[in-house]
């Protein structure tokens, strides 16, 4: 019943893309309003669920829905801060995909006995930290993809067209307009790393604490832990290289993409292959 409501923001997001193809400034504004409208619908659904169920562990589909909402929060904050609203065009499909996954995801309930009292709060903290970190890295992933494509265009000098200011077609301004430069994209990517890395580190640390307190073992060398460690190492190396050696641009973008692919795999492992770790049946 509740999951049917996921379709509301999903359909709003899909519908909004019609306005992109209309190709004028008014339509672009309508597109933005619709995206923000979809985000408002997501928020209303989430707070509605929290109002009904309280601050508690969610079933899997709700977690994916919550992840989509977090991703949207991150993106909206970044687009407002960097005044680069074009990012919404690329990231909204990822949010929509999350909603679609949430719609089809199993409605597995949490195991009530495994986590109780303090452990439950720590588990919630672990999930929230990791999901915010992952959302920020998802944004970095999309930004990195845009960077690589844009950089390739500039390097190969292909499909780069310049227009007289008065004559710029709407779609050109929209896709390649100001603010859409390599330096800004790299800067957003770096910012994502600087914010996302501490969150994910803290999330993993909390996860390790939970693992040791519940399963009475610090490291049981399951694939999820190995993948999490590799993911953390990738981002740690990237951060170190950026600070110490000034690595930036394409190399940093490639690192971000690889890092996010590991995040996706560790999330898949944790939610689908090893549901027990997170109290899921």
């Amino acid at each position: 019943m509740f999951r049917d409501l996921y379709l509301v923001p999903l359909l709003i997001f899909i519908f909004s893309y019609i306005f992109i193809y209309l190709g004028n400034k008014k339509a672009y504004n309508i597109f933005l309003y619709l995206i923000y409208g979809g985000f408002a619908a997501q928020s209303a659904l989430l707070f509605g669920w929290l109002y009904v169920n309280g601050f508690n562990l969610m079933p899997v589909d709700n977690i994916v829905f919550f992840n989509a909402w977090l991703l949207m929060v991150v993106v909206v904050l970044f687009t407002l801060f960097y005044r680069a609203r074009y990012i919404l065009v690329y990231i909204t499909p990822v949010v929509a995909l999350n909603l679609l996954i949430a719609f089809f995801a199993p409605h597995n309930a949490v195991k009530p006995l495994a986590f109780q009292g303090q452990d439950l709060s720590v588990l919630l903290l672990h999930i929230i930290l990791v999901l915010i970190g992952d959302s920020i890295f998802a944004l970095a992933f999309i930004i990195s993809l845009i960077y690589i494509l844009q950089e390739r265009k500039i390097k190969l000098k292909k499909n780069l067209k310049l227009f007289n200011k008065k004559e710029i077609p709407f779609y050109e301004f929209f896709y390649l307009g100001k603010g859409y430069n390599l330096e800004l994209l790299d800067s957003i990517n770096y910012q994502c790393l600087k914010i996302g890395f501490p969150l994910i580190t803290l999330g993993i640390a909390v996860g390790i604490y939970l693992s040791s307190s519940i399963f009475k073992s610090f490291m049981i060398a399951k694939p999820i832990e190995i993948i999490s460690l590799i993911t953390w190492l990738i981002y740690a190396v990237l951060l170190h290289e950026r600070i110490a050696r000034g690595v930036r641009g394409k190399k940093a973008a490639v690192f971000s993409i690889i890092g996010f692919l590991f995040i996706v795999s560790s999330l898949s492992f944790s939610l689908y292959l090893f549901p027990k770790f997170h109290g899921l049946k």
């Binding site: 310049l162 390649l176 390599l182 330096e183």
Partner: peptide
């Protein structure tokens, strides 16, 4: 009247690389 000049193109290209 308003040609798209090499100089204009050079500035526009640099704006694709640099932010500020």
């Amino acid at each position: 009247s308003s040609p798209v000049s090499i100089s204009y193109a050079a500035v526009e290209l640099s704006r694709k690389i640099f932010n500020n």
